[in-house]
Design a binder for these strands. Sequence first.
DNA 1: TAGTGTCC
DNA 2: TCGG
Length: 215
Amino acid sequence: MLTDDLFASQPQPAIQLQAQAWLLPAFACSVDQQLWADIQTVIAQAALRQMQIPGGKTMSVAMTNCGDYGWVSDRSGYRYSATDPQTGSSWPAIPESLFDLAVSAAKAAGFDSFLPDACLINRYLTGCKMSLHQDKDEQDMTAPIVSVSLGIDAVFQLGGFTRTGPKLKVPLAHGDVLVWGGEDRLRYHGVLTVKQAQHPLVGGQRINLTFRKSN
DNA sequence: TAGTGTCC
DNA sequence: TCGG
C-alpha cells in the first residue's frame, strides 16, 4: 500500500463544532470501496432524480433513498415515503456497510442507540448546491443526523436556529462524517456550490449519505 | 405559510 | 463573492 493511502485512512480525532455537533475526519475511508459499491447497487434499483420543491422549482442535487422510508419532495411538499414515487416500489434496504457506518459514527459522537430507518443519497455534480435549511420532517428529534461525504470536496455550512446569523464553514473531504443532534439537531445547514474536481474512487461528483430516524 | 431556490 |  502506498504511504499516501495509509496516511489517508488513519483514524483522526473528532472535531467538536458545537455542543452536540461533531466532524469525524476520514471516518469512512477504511470502508469506502464497500460503501461505494453498495451505493451504486442502490442507485441501480432506485434511480437518482432531481426533485421538485413546492412552487415547482427543481433542486440541483439529484437524490434517491434506501431504508424503510425515503425523503421526497414534490409540488405538494416534503415528506417521508415508504415507497419510491417513481416506481411505486419499496426503497432498497439500507446496505449493512452503510448501516454499520452510521451507527458507529453516531456512537463516536456520543449518540449511543441510533437506529436509522432512512438514508437519503444526494449526488452533487459540479455547480450543485444545497441552500440553507433545517431537517425537520422527522418525527423523532431526539435522534441525530449522520452525514457521510464521499467523492470530491465541498464546503458545509452550519448555522444557527434561524436562516440568518453566523455560520461555520466546514470543508468536507472524502470519508468525512458529520454528526449533529440534541440541542443542535435543528440548526440550519447547507452546502456551497461544488467546484469541478475529480476523485479517484467516485469520479467528478460528490455523494452524500444522510441517515435519519424518520419515524 | 412556503419550503433544501432565487434574487438583490 | 457574500449575506439576508
